[in-house]
């Protein structure tokens, strides 16, 4: 079974970026890492490949400055190869433009199944996987918490408001997975060494048949009209528990007529 996993490379969330006051976009000049949300998709792909006993896991990423750091992490976990789309024209590309690029890049790989995360940690639009599916003309199942593959189809447990739905979907298909559903493996030392020599197909948008006006700022079709700090909330009273804090809490709940 051949699986493509979308892997977004993002600034370290522990060190959030800032907006460039000139363009109102995120400054992204630091080293990028694999979005943790995608580590679940990578893990799931590795498990499905290994259970099937054949096939390859190909990573697909669109990132600035030919960034490969996050892809190397996923290759070190055990993915077989990667496709990286990097192009100056991509600066400012929105979710739809990103999906166009990813869909074209996925077209370069063999794929029975395409995995992505339900939402990225930095953009969190949560629409890219479904947009990729539509662009490729494929069925999709979002919010997967479990995937079983057998003979040309997948059986997916899809999160719902009430619990989950069991969804049967023929392949090829796009499936997005939620965080925390599998335990992403740590790369071994051997894996990290091997990752350095795994195939990395680096392409620009021209190689994908995409023109500059379909992506970037121009392709976005939306503009930022205002950026302002969110209103702050004031702190109230702080007490130290001396064994009676629960009484204070109850007094407040009584005052609010909750109890």
């Amino acid at each position: 079974m051949d699986i493509v996993v979308c892997v977004k490379q993002i600034p370290d969330p522990a060190d959030p970026g800032e907006l460039d006051p000139a363009t109102n976009t995120l400054k992204r000049d630091m080293k990028l890492i694999m979005d943790e949300s995608d580590s679940y998709g990578v893990e799931m792909a590795l498990q499905l490949r290994d259970a099937a006993g054949d096939g390859e896991v190909t990573l697909v990423s669109m990132a600035p400055h030919e960034e490969v750091n996050g892809l190397r992490s996923a290759l070190a976990m055990g993915a077989d190869k990667a496709i990286l789309v990097s192009d100056e024209a991509l600066a400012g590309t929105d979710a739809l433009g990103t999906a166009r690029v990813l869909a074209a890049a996925i077209g370069r790989a063999q794929a029975d199944l395409i995995l992505a995360a339900t939402e990225s940690s930095d953009g969190y639009t949560g629409t890219v996987p479904e947009q990729v599916a539509e662009l490729l003309g494929l069925p999709s199942v979002t919010f997967a918490k479990e995937i079983q593959a057998d003979s040309g189809e997948v059986l997916v447990k899809r999160q719902t408001e009430a619990g989950y739905d069991e969804v049967r979907c023929p392949l090829p298909a796009v499936v997005s997975v939620t965080a925390g559903v599998v335990e992403p493996r740590y790369p071994s030392f051997k894996g990290i060494m091997a990752a350095k020599s795994k195939p990395m197909d680096q392409v620009g948008i021209g190689d994908l048949g995409i023109s500059a006006d379909q992506v970037g700022w121009a392709g976005g079709g939306q503009e930022i009209t205002d950026v302002s700090p969110a209103p702050e909330r004031e702190a109230g009273e702080i007490i130290t528990d001396e064994g009676d804090a629960h009484e204070r809490i109850i007094a407040l709940l009584e005052e609010l007529r909750i109890v």
């Binding site: 979710a95 629409t127 479904e130 719902t160 079709g221 939306q222």
Partner: peptide
Amino acid sequence: GTTYDGRDVAGRLSVKLGAPVITN
């Protein structure tokens, strides 16, 4: 709504209409 199905419909629609979605 930013819900399981809301996102799916908006995402598919955005591609069909060639229009972006303003999210969150």
